[in-house]
Amino acid sequence: MLKVTIGQYYPAESFIHRLDPRMKLLCTLLFIVFIFFITNFLGYIAAAIYLALIVRTSTVPPRFLLRGLRAIFFIIIFTAVLNIFFTAGETIVLQLGGFRITQEGLLNAGRMALRLIMLIIGSSILTLTTTPIQLTDAIEYALKPLKKIRVPAHEIAMMMTIALRFIPTLMEEMDKIMKAQMARGADFDTGGLIKKARSLVPLLVPLFISAFRRAEDLALAMESRCYRGDVGRTRMKKMKMAGRDYAALGVLLLLIAAIFALNYVAGVFGIW
């Protein structure tokens, strides 16, 4: 079978893996929000130390994290370049024709790149240590309050679970159909945009047909087992917060406190 690692879960038995997915989701969101509050390099050092500790505890090999970074490498470079050239500032470091590179621009670029990198590493840790199913459970829980305004939280989570379950299946199917059409001389690689788009028809039509067939089968199978949505449904594996979850949250709160303290210190001493 074609092995596709969705959200690239890295199976292990670490402290981070065992945390309640809801707490991990909350902490990741908090972390992402608060790295945007950092104003100076001391804060970034604190956040980096925190991240390094998390990575160590999670036992995920760093190369898995770097892989995620590689995917968005160009976005990082791109935003950095934009920041370098388009930040207004006084202290000119280098004059290049009409463009000038300023100290403010360089600082901004560095900050933005650091934020992006930390954001990616932080969210990768979440997906690497949480199975997709756990993650959707956590999201369902997080969406629960929205049920009051008729947001179908359970249904959204169920759809995400099903989608995640079928991505590898459909990838495998696509691989097969692609090969079958290539055996009939189909060419997916060359030609202009229009020709390329047209060449996708023999791939997408069978793929959609098979997806619909699978969807129908699955719907039947769910109904024949009396699935009727959220109401009265209980769980086989109940999520439960434990001491370690509150400890994890505590460590994060410490980091947030440190960020604000360092912001204050940096403000007083004029550190950038």
């Binding site: 199917e173 097969k176 159909i177 090969k179 079958a180 059409q181 290539m182 055996a183 001389g185 028809v201 023999p202 039509v205 069978p206 047909i209 098979s210």
Partner: peptide, 16 residues
């Protein structure tokens, strides 16, 4: 690929 014709398993799944 013209010389060697390959009929896949469940080839009806590739009709479009």
């Amino acid at each position: 690929r013209t010389k060697v014709g390959l009929v896949f398993q469940y080839p009806e799944h590739q009709l479009f």
